[in-house]
Design a protein around this nucleic acid. Structure first.
Lengths: 119, 119
DNA sequence: TTTATATATGATCAGTTGTTCATATGATTA
DNA sequence: TAATCATATGAACAACTGATCATATATAAA
């Protein structure tokens, strides 16, 4: 019924009522974890560049490799990460895989992130 | 004048004009890097919980430790990361450091992120 | 069917990350 | 001043990440 730290904190912490209130409001692990995964996925320069490129145009793997200047293998590996997070979708046309943004959330996250960074 | 991959791609890649166009639009490293750092910072469950807690209330270090159930040392280390990214600010009152969200961008990022995750 | 092309995947490994433990700092109290 | 409390910091280490290289798959062309 109590976590490892509660006992210690009942002696120790400063605002017990605030702690309780915020603890109740706290998002559960099943929400926090996927959210952390999403941000972690966007927390890499290569993947951000891939997403930004796909914000501009539908592109295939070797186009993407050329745009951001890394190997096609590296691009393919990172596209899989983006796919797992449902940040990109793709369609096959013959041998070529065309990648697209999965939805508009990425644009919003990009915009908000840039706003924070550019201050 | 040309990157290591350009030569190879002029033979290889599928849509040279698209590549050029997107390459020109591509954000430069000085923008991408801090943006990646921002998302990377939010890409950790502990730090997300800290931010979420601070979205609800101003809290001190030991309160935060109690809320999310980790050691105060771990909290302090992660708060430094959040401070470096200007995601939180703080004020001292005697021995106690009170932490707050630095601005409203975090709320927007949280909201957008949750929207993506909860689909 | 053989060959070539576009992409995906597995193994490897150096570099990074997050926690823990021990110690240090800075402010209050005795 | 010494002792105590709240927080910060440094070192260390296991766990994770991302690029590379080699290899595999899938489609198309010969």
């Amino acid at each position: 019924m109590s976590t490892e730290f509660e006992g210690r904190c009942e002696i120790h912490c400063v605002h017990e009522d605030n702690v309780k209130e915020v603890k109740i409001a706290m998002l559960d692990q099943d929400t926090i974890m996927p959210l952390a995964e999403l941000f972690k996925t966007m927390g890499d320069a290569t993947r951000l560049k891939l997403l930004f490129a796909l914000m501009k145009k539908e592109l295939c793997v070797c186009d993407l490799a050329a745009v951001i200047g890394v190997s096609e293998s590296a691009v393919s590996h990172q596209l899989r990460v983006l796919r797992n997070q449902k940040l990109v979708k793709f369609r096959r046309h013959g041998k070529i895989m065309y990648y697209n943004l999965a939805d508009e959330h990425v644009r919003m996250l990009f915009a908000q992130g840039l706003e924070h960074v550019c201050e």
